[in-house]
Design a protein around this nucleic acid. Sequence first.
RNA 1: GGUCCCGUGGUGCAGUUUGGAGUGCACGCCGGCCUGUCAAGCCGGAGGUCGCGGGUUCAAAUCCCGUCGGGACCGCCA
Length: 578
Amino acid sequence: MRTDYCGELRADDIGREVSVCGWVDRRREHGEHLAFIDLRDRTGVVQCVVDERHDLRSEYVARVTGTVRARPDGTANPTLATGEVEVGDCQVEVLSAAEPPPFPLHSRTEVDENVRLRYRYVDLRGERLQRNLSLRAAVNSAIRRSMEAQRFTEVETPMLVASTPEGARDFVVPSRLHPGRFYALPQSPQIFKQLCMVGGIDRYYQIARCLRDEDLRADRQFEFMQLDAEASFAGQHDVMAFITEAVFAAVEATTGNRPADPITMSWTDAMERYGTDKPDVRFGLELVELTGLFEGTEAKVFQVECVKGINCKGGGGSLGRNAVDELTRKCRQWGAKGLAWFRVGGNGALDGALTKFMSDAEQAALGPAMGAEPGDLLLLVADRRQTVRDVLGLLRLELGRPPVTEGGLHFVWVTDFPLFESIDDQGRPISAHHPFTMPHPEDVGLLDGAGEELLAVRSQAYDMVLNGWELGSGSVRIHRPDIQRAVFRALGIGDDEAEERFGFLLDAFRYGAPPHAGFAFGIDRLVAILAGEENIREVIAFPKTQSGADPLSNSPTPISDRHLDELGLHVLPPPAAG
RNA sequence: GGUCCCGUGGUGCAGUUUGGAGUGCACGCCGGCCUGUCAAGCCGGAGGUCGCGGGUUCAAAUCCCGUCGGGACCGCCA
């Protein structure tokens, strides 16, 4: 049916008789007979010169047979890859007529996403999604090649698994053969890949679909793809090297360049300097520690556990009172009591509502501590340390985060995460990762502590961050029963509970578990950044909206009573409004 | 669970602040003219429940309340 792709015809092809197939991208008619038809397929467009009358309209599907020829002098189109040639003496065969598209396919107008999703099959024809999906395919392919070159074996793990109470909310699937019982769709292949290690697979990988029933965001869908990997007889640095190699192979395959080596930063450093565990190091505006400067201060707002600030360079002039009020409002929404701000005057003196509560020494020290120059705006938050970090971390992004397409690719490995993220009401620690994460070897002794002391225990867990996006995380897993017992004891998990929740994994470890470590990273996010998209929906063929619906297929839908009966399910009426 | 933004012919917008006839722009669509265009050009035309419901008013796209849909974010995502 077809001899060539539209977008691949070149001067070399002049004189050849070709058949091309595709969609009518655009037509330009001149009188009753002559028309220029731009025929489009996934490779691009080629101009076809049609001399007979044809009813060819936008998005008609056609097969055109003709002779490739040079365009007449002065009519070549240098903006087009096929611009030196055209297909002449065309015979046209309409393969499908088409209604006018529900929205323009070219990228000059940003069409409402709901409309694009309802007609996703039309949207997919556009240059943007064609480019993004082929980039995605190239990333997947490069990752597979890289993992295989590093002697990882691809293993497929089940989609219907046992529900576990930890972590994200599960999607559940009712069992027909076991009424009243449910499978869960996997949040990740975590348990299975560790079982693979016990099973001697040695190095496992999978480009795995993972599902979590949590609220959607620009960087989160219900279902997403991860490069999931685990290696036996390997530690943190081995795994970081494997993953860096796979990610860099994907970047190189799609951009042609190998990125700069990742920097490594401890979790504590990331939190103190960037206010987040996923630092975007493309820009400055780092958090400055000011707690010591305000020690013994008279100013009540600064008599707190922690004071930190951001120097918004030049913000004294560029940000007016309304803008600063808006920032204050946001800081309150993020959990701060307020935002203290000072404009730096021409002589370096500070101007702000709080100066009257501060000593001369404090006023004199604040500017130099923050590297202030005339015209800067100093933004301070005082509160519990965790609140200060969180709020200033968000404020920093608000003030300076560049668009995804700017600033290059800055990879960061964040290491030495705490083993426990916080202490609950009963004084028990809450796992930061999962309870099989190996503590830092220097901190194993601290596991016998209690309460707040446990928060000092570091773990051998590590995240890969790219331009402020958390690409993924991994850890060294506990394979020694004594350490596992100590962690469970710290978490307040008794033997019976451990058996009930994680029994089959613990059983497996009794039969010869190699030391192992692993990682998983989100392919959607990596592809989005490489594609210059702020939103992973732009790199997913059929994504869901923020409310978890698919405007194309109308999922989720009700199911029939007969179907429910078969599953032994009864649907309650929705809770009454009000 | 919460905060904020958006909803006007097929598409993108203006109009909403300060209520006064569905007013306007660009693209697309339909018809006509046009033999070297390429975002073709020129002429003409069609196309509207201003998301939906209620309220205020002589009068609502515009003000108020509610609701639905979309988006960004907080919570949530071990």
